[in-house]
Amino acid sequence: MINQRVRDLALSDTGFVFDPYSGATFTVNPTGLCILRALAEGLARPDVVRRLRESFDAPPAEVEADLDDFLHLLGQQGVLPQDFHLDT
């Protein structure tokens, strides 16, 4: 179950993100933006990975690793709970 806070993030096409809970603003690269949009839609992990592979030319292992890194980063920033795990 995806966190409501991720659904409420304001995402712009340029990668500018506004978190209305904390008032924080930050920028993400196209990969990050793709992940945030997928999370906001409530996609499960395999679907997020599939979308990333459709959008970016990268080997599966690298996509998985990048996804984990980004989720960890979102946890560090308080956007996701620290113990968050994406449904498989």
């Binding site: 209305p20 809970y21 008032g23 603003t25």
Partner: peptide, 16 residues
């Protein structure tokens, strides 16, 4: 943005 007197010099509306 917070000044040296602790005053907000810029701010944004939030929802929590």
């Amino acid at each position: 943005v917070i000044t040296d007197k602790g005053k907000g010099w810029a701010g944004i509306t939030v929802r929590d």
